[in-house]
Amino acid sequence: MKISASLYSSKDTPLPQLMQELDNLHIDYIHIDCNDDLSVFDDIEEIRTISRTPIDIHIISDDPAKFYPALQKHRPELVTFQHENLRGPLPPLPVGVKSRIGVAFVSDTPIEAFEHYRPLCSFVLFMTTVPGQSGGQFDQDTFQKIRQFQERYPGTRIHVDGGVNDEVSFILRNMGVYCSVSGSYLMQAKDKPGALLRLRSPYIEGQYRVRDFMILRHELPVIAESDANDLRQLLVCVHESRQGFALVADADGKLAGIVTDRDIRAALIKHLDDLEAICSSDLINPRPVTVDGDSTIGQMLELIRDCPFPIRFLPVVDSDNTLIGAIAFNNLIKGEL
């Protein structure tokens, strides 16, 4: 996951010194909040003379067109427009603007608002705090909004801004978020290298529970135990989910097993000389490793580290083994690319 350092969250360090610090950290983007203020392009002009780090500008204005000449001149790599401040449709961008364009939404805006921006925008920025203000608290409901957006607009990159600390960063990476903006956590840290390392760390402990960011049950490929004897139906469930697994639940909603791509391959190898002999019991692992929904991130990671084999999918259950969700770790890998 890319990290965009919010420039104006650091108020006391001279710009040349601050840019040298950030360049030494090999930060991915410089995030600049533009609260209807053309003078921020003076800072961008200065940054261009001392750094090659890409610029990520967030324009918060009801008159975005007045910024178009400056965008043509300074060519920031990323430009985001705040949806709630626009008085109508975004005016057509001039030909000279070559930036990747995105739109920002506050927490209360439904994800369906992105529909109007699809032809223009290659990414969305979810604001979890007040746009343009530093030091806010992350809005936990953003986790669900990210999942809903991914389901409705697959392939569109997701950026997140507001209250991102090391723990939130780990969760966002696991969810496949492309970029997070770090304000006070990084920019006001006395040890910026240490703060950046924690933002990218795979070992995190904190307040969030697995149930806070898991994939919810209704979003998962789940097949009833009574239907799992139908081999074709079981295989189709795994294939059509495009997640590489399917979960089996009994009539009471309790987890009865998991089928993964690996299980399917193992069954094929076992019965290679007689494929007709394959049955559902060859595919279903009735005792998969699971994690309790109330486990912390640290407890979940300890469970994974203690497991003697790699884990790509982790069913989430409650105290009586009722299936409530799952964690898929493929996004952690994709999020680092």
Results as ranks from 00 to 15, higher is better:
114 F>V: 01
222 V>A: 04
52 R>N: 08
188 Q>F: 10
336 E>H: 11
96 G>N: 04
189 A>F: 04
186 L>A: 09
169 S>A: 15
173 R>I: 01
3 I>H: 02
37 D>W: 04
124 V>N: 01
166 D>Q: 12
251 A>W: 06
216 L>Q: 04
37 D>Y: 13
15 L>D: 01
181 V>K: 06
62 D>R: 05
287 R>C: 08
160 V>F: 11
166 D>R: 04
22 L>K: 00
88 G>F: 03
15 L>A: 04
54 P>S: 10
238 V>H: 03
291 V>K: 01
77 E>L: 07
27 I>S: 03
121 C>P: 00
243 Q>V: 04
228 A>Q: 09
141 D>R: 14
150 Q>P: 01
261 D>M: 13
144 Q>M: 10
111 I>K: 01
28 D>L: 02
179 C>Y: 02
175 M>G: 00
175 M>R: 01
53 T>A: 06
210 V>Y: 06
123 F>N: 00
227 D>E: 10
137 Q>V: 07
27 I>L: 11
241 S>N: 05
148 Q>V: 02
291 V>H: 03
10 S>K: 13
286 P>V: 15
91 P>E: 12
297 I>V: 15
116 H>I: 11
195 A>E: 09
74 H>F: 15
2 K>T: 05
310 P>G: 11
262 R>C: 02
5 A>L: 04
47 I>A: 11
270 K>Q: 11
132 G>N: 03
56 D>T: 12
249 A>S: 13
242 R>D: 11
121 C>H: 08
76 P>Y: 10
214 M>G: 03
266 A>K: 12
230 D>E: 09
191 D>F: 06
64 P>T: 13
161 D>Y: 09
191 D>P: 00
296 T>R: 10
306 D>V: 12
51 S>N: 02
188 Q>C: 09
290 T>M: 11
27 I>T: 09
47 I>R: 04
157 R>E: 11
274 D>C: 08
53 T>F: 09
